[in-house]
Measured scan of single mutants.
Amino acid sequence: EDAPSSDDLEQFAKQFKQRRIKLGFTQADVGLALGTLYGNVFSQTTICRFEALQLSFKNMCKLKPLLNKWLEETDSSS
Rank of each mutant, 00 (worst) to 15 (best):
S78R: 11
L23A: 07
K14N: 08
F42I: 15
M60L: 07
E73N: 09
S43H: 10
K17P: 02
D29E: 14
Q54H: 11
P65M: 06
L66F: 11
G31N: 04
I47S: 02
A33S: 10
S78G: 14
D75L: 08
S78Y: 12
V30H: 06
L66D: 01
N40T: 12
D2F: 14
K22R: 11
K58F: 04
C61Y: 09
A52N: 15
F50G: 02
I21S: 05
T74K: 13
G24V: 00
R19Q: 08
D75N: 14
F57V: 09
S43G: 06
A13C: 14
T45G: 10
Q27I: 13
A52G: 09
S78P: 11
F16M: 03
S76H: 08
S5L: 14
S6E: 15
D7Y: 14
N40G: 12
F57L: 12
R20P: 02
I21M: 07
T36K: 14
A33R: 10
F25S: 04
R19T: 11
C61I: 09
S77P: 13
L32H: 13
I21G: 02
Q27H: 15
L34P: 01
G35C: 06
D75R: 10
N59G: 11
D8N: 07
Q15W: 07
L32A: 12
L63K: 00
G39W: 05
E73T: 11
D2E: 15
K14R: 08
R19K: 15
K69Q: 11
W70L: 03
T74I: 04
T45M: 08
F50M: 03
V30P: 01
Y38L: 05
T46P: 03
L67K: 01
L32T: 08
L9F: 10
F50T: 01
D7L: 08
E72N: 09
A33F: 10
L34I: 03
M60Y: 14
G35R: 12
E51G: 07
S77A: 13
K62R: 09
Q11E: 12
N59L: 10
I21D: 03
P4Y: 15
L55K: 03
L63I: 11
S78H: 15
E72A: 08
I47M: 02
A13S: 03
T74V: 13
D29Y: 02
A28L: 05
K64R: 12
G24N: 03
V41T: 14
L63P: 01
A3D: 09
C61T: 05
K22Q: 12
I21K: 06
E10H: 15
E73L: 11
T26M: 03
N59P: 02
W70D: 04
S77W: 08
L55I: 00
D2A: 15
T45Q: 14
D8W: 01
K69H: 07
T26A: 04
Q44K: 13
K17N: 00
G31W: 04
A33T: 05
A13N: 09
E1G: 11
K58N: 15
V30L: 08
E73C: 10
P4Q: 07
F57R: 12
W70R: 02
T26W: 00
N68D: 10
K22G: 06
F42M: 12
R19I: 08
T45N: 14
K69M: 09
F50C: 00
